[in-house]
Design a protein around this nucleic acid. Structure first.
Length: 470
RNA sequence: GACCCCAUCGUCUAGCCAGGUCAGGACGUCACCCUUUCAAGGUGAAAACACGGGUUCGAAUCCCGUUGGGGUCACCA
């Protein structure tokens, strides 16, 4: 049997962190067993589904690198098939028409609450003679669910879970307007798409019982279920808009590389021994449902950030440059010139270990690309006053005499100048840093000198010297 | 409220199924080292089996209960 998994988001909002992880696990599982990973857009709620949300989901998946197999299936396009299945079930006696009014239903719900649980729907029309049907009421179609016994699902994550059938009522399959409900559509689609494993959030666990009853009524074999615990916000509460439930693109915009987000998400609820940092290919090779935990996890931005820093450090310079060029150009107000790009790539090795996100990195890289004269920040400006200016002049003189410009030769020259002046290296390095970068924080100063080149370096130093003099 | 699920450092987790380890790792925190700033890196430290009963020579591991957290209870998906 070929494994077929699916991710089935409803396009009523962005792709959130939990959905992304669900998609990731489904993809891992399909890859692990050489199967297929399908995408189904559950857009049957026309009132709430939006084109923008659909795009956000597709783009989010693509950004994360979670490509699906084949074309996405749109649930709304299959409504006629869903309804036909329900009508066939009706003809076979596995379902019936119910003419209850919303008021009657509300009363039943109230009665059930007073009773302290159990079935909501009291079965009024289950065995009633259809001849008694009121003529002016459009009926819904309900499943004739089993009254006693229990419905059991053997969940790959949760284990065997059983619910007594007297807790489950006759769910609506077809609305009064003839459109199928979610519960029916999901079952028909999963069946028609040959889904073998349904990996989804814990919040669907109770739906699994209802769906199992539909499968049974239809005489279809249910797929295997794996209900993964939800991701909670940092405070332990359910992820909601108030509690850090952002769209995946928000994390992209915060500067987290996609591989860091994937790696982080993979470790939330799933583990492979003590492995923390791994590629998605490795994870797919290791992945199995039995290694998914049963308890919910809290979202921890600090750990994501540390993974982000790791992937930035490890990333190839040219690729990294490509990722931060757009925001850099935006800050500069112009596209990068070849010279700026060359300096950027050359400066990246020193910049990388100092950045935690791509946003940090772009910000820190700005000084390599800024045109002269640089505008020093307040702390840097202070380093260029009085004594600092004199030491800077000392450093300039030492630098100006260098024949073969390199990080090493610059270091030799500046160290010698510091020693001659009876100063510590830092006394010359900090003013130099302020002049060269406009800041008090930067990569190693000799590396900066090297990347900038002799002419640009001396030019920036002179800019500072002149500013301090004037 | 009813039904269902869960419970190891602050967080993510290994260990649990097939009881015997100083309960391991990672993030974060703290200290020290390195050092031209800031990072990175290195070394080290503090930090957990929710509670109560069993079963057993022995329980984080098996059983029951309590407490705490979570999910679901629509003609939404």
């Amino acid at each position: 049997m070929t494994v077929v998994t699916r991710f089935a988001p409803s396009p009523t909002g962005f792709l959130h962190i939990g959905g992304a992880r669900t998609a990731l696990f489904n993809r891992f599982y399909a890859r692990r067993y050489g199967g297929k990973f399908l995408l189904r857009i559950e857009d049957t709620d026309r009132a709430r589904s939006t084109e923008a949300a659909k795009q956000a989901i597709l783009e989010g998946l693509q950004w994360l690198g979670l490509e699906w197999d084949g074309e996405p299936v749109y649930q709304s396009a299959r409504a006629e098939r869903h309804a036909a299945v329900a009508r066939a079930l009706l003809d076979a006696g596995g379902a019936y028409r119910c003419y209850c009014s919303p008021e009657e239903l509300a009363a039943m719900r109230e009665a059930a609450r007073k009773r302290g649980g159990g079935r909501l729907y009291d079965g009024t029309w289950r065995d009633r003679d259809p001849a008694e049907a009121p003529e002016d009421v459009a009926p819904v179609v309900r499943l004739k669910a089993p009254l006693d016994g229990e419905t059991v699902i053997d969940d790959a994550v949760q284990g065997r879970v059983a619910v007594r059938n007297d807790q489950l009522d006759d769910m609506v399959l077809l609305r009064a307007d003839g459109t199928p409900t979610y519960m029916l559509s999901v079952v028909v689609d999963d069946h028609d798409m040959d889904i073998t494993h349904i990996v989804r959030g814990d919040d669907h666990l109770t739906n699994a019982f209802r769906q199992t009853q539909i499968y049974r009524a239809l005489g279809w074999e249910a797929p295997a279920f794996a209900h993964i615990p939800l991701i909670h916000g940092p405070d332990g509460a359910k992820m909601s808009k108030r509690h850090g439930a952002l769209g995946i693109e928000a994390y992209r915009d915060m500067g987290f590389p996609a591989e860091a987000v994937c790696n982080y998400l993979a470790r939330l609820g799933w583990s492979h021994g003590d492995d923390e940092i791994f590629s998605m290919t490795e994870a797919a090779g290791w992945f199995d449902l039995k290694d998914i935990g049963r308890s919910p996890a809290r979202f921890d931005l600090a750990k994501l950030t540390s993974l982000s820093a790791h992937y930035i450090r490890e990333m190839a310079d040219t690729r990294l440059a490509g990722l931060i060029e757009p925001p850099l150009a935006a800050r500069l107000g112009a596209p990068l010139t070849a010279l700026q790009r060359a300096r950027l790539v050359a400066g990246l090795p020193g910049l990388k270990p100092r950045a935690r996100t791509l946003v940090d990195l772009a910000e820190a890289a700005l000084f390599y690309c800024r045109p002269r004269p640089l505008q020093p920040d307040a702390k840097a400006a202070k380093l260029l006053d009085g004594a600092g200016r004199e030491r800077l002049a000392l450093a300039r003189a030492a630098l100006a005499g260098i024949a073969g410009w390199s990080a090493e030769s610059a270091e030799t020259a500046v160290r010698a100048a510091a020693e001659a002046a009876g100063e510590k290296l830092g006394a010359l390095a900090q003013p130099l840093r302020a002049a060269l970068t406009g800041s008090t924080v930067s990569p190693g100063i000799f590396e900066v000198l090297d990347v900038l080149g002799k002419a640009e370096s001396l030019g920036r130093i002179d800019d500072s010297l002149e500013r301090a003099a004037g």
